[in-house]
Design a protein around this nucleic acid. Structure first.
Lengths: 209, 209
DNA sequence: CCAAGTTCTGAATCCAGTTTCACTTCTTCC
DNA sequence: GGAAGAAGTGAAACTGGATTCAGAACTTGG
């Protein structure tokens, strides 16, 4: 009995684990999930390929965690923005759309990866989870709006999906990486505004805030 | 000089080529592009693996052609339905949505493959082409509607994308293969109706046809 | 410093497919 | 029938990455 895991050891392991996650995340943000090969992740964090496997069950596992963390962060920001916008459904939807779309147009590559990039099944499963978190959030807002009478009566779940799809697809032109070298802030603002108006009309509200 | 390609020969070659395409298409319709391995295609058409390569440059080439043909057919049907619905933008949009969504809910697996299945770059490129055909078609209708005054004034291109996204995403719940064993005709009709109403509201029309 | 245990390393291996190609079979024409 | 060329075959080679694992390099407590 001459070696036993110590505090420092454990902390170190935790740091290394995080380093892998950080490296992978930065690779995804730069080149998408496809660019996050085990080789690249190891190189980026200055460790060996094999070492990745003592911290994660495999590439899928690691990337799923990266997805969860990145998507979870976005979801949190969007949720907070909506919650912080007050009581009214209109204000909450407004905040949600602005935040979601605005942020996507900032980190374009990451947004594309989270929303559209073809990924392996394990990661796709994570995506599904977040997708339904968003539709859940939207459904809540739409439902409240219908109850308040500011939105038209409608199938709430379907409307939530459709709104999410509309936002995503309208964004995609502006997202698809490698499309344009850079889109101006004004162009981005116009896209967000267009999406906003579309969504409000779709839900059947008069006041546009 | 003892052998030269004859009429029968050429016809035969053409038939075989089509047999490969048909086999691949049926595999895609049943199991998606992922299920259309070269092995499976060869087996399905009762030929050898190698033989595929004397008719196509490779798997990508073959699958791209399958995509083109399937998506082109759908697009044609949808376009015809819209054109056949008369002059008004409302009627044309109505026909487009009904046709697009209705048909997707019939061949679910194929629709999912054409719309969402992760595919190789060459096939994805085809998808992009058809996506923009649809948004083009939609943009035309929306533009006309705005001119007619039956739709609200808006960014036509953005609205077209958003409508396509709304339809697709609203469908996806009903499409994702393996989700449900079978959805009833009534449920399908309700989905189509919901999408229809959503789109009309989104474009800002009063009369819903 | 040593022994015992842990972590790290990266070349070798595996894997699930696609692609090739030497060989066989079939067609055509004389 | 036989020569010349086309088409078909399928086992073997290839591909590009993930995954493994035997040994090297560390850590710890004595």
């Amino acid at each position: 009995m001459a070696y036993r895991a110590t505090e420092a050891t454990r902390r170190n392991a935790e740091l290394k684990r995080r380093a892998f996650l950080r490296a992978a995340r930065s690779l995804v943000a730069a080149h998408g999930f496809g660019g996050a090969t085990v080789q690249a992740i190891a190189a980026e964090s200055g460790a060996s390929v094999g070492s990745v496997y003592s911290y994660f069950d495999g590439r899928e596992d690691l990337l799923a965690e990266v997805f969860r963390s990145a998507a979870g962060h976005e979801l949190g920001v969007v949720r907070d923005a909506a919650a912080g916008a007050g009581e009214g459904a209109v204000a909450r939807l407004d905040a949600l759309v602005r935040t979601f779309a605005g942020r996507a147009l900032q980190g374009r590559q990451m947004a594309w990866s989270l929303l559209f990039e073809p990924v392996t099944p394990a990661v796709e499963a994570e995506r599904l989870v977040y997708r339904s978190s968003y539709t859940g959030l939207l459904a809540e807002i739409v439902g409240d709006g219908v109850a308040e009478g500011v939105f038209a009566a409608q199938d709430v779940a379907l409307a939530a999906s459709a709104v999410l799809g509309a936002i995503s697809e309208a964004l995609i032109g502006g997202l698809r990486p490698g499309d344009r070298p850079a889109a101006s802030a004004e162009a981005d603002a116009a896209i967000v505004e267009g999406i906003r108006l579309f969504c409000f009309r779709a839900l059947g509200t008069e006041e546009t805030l």
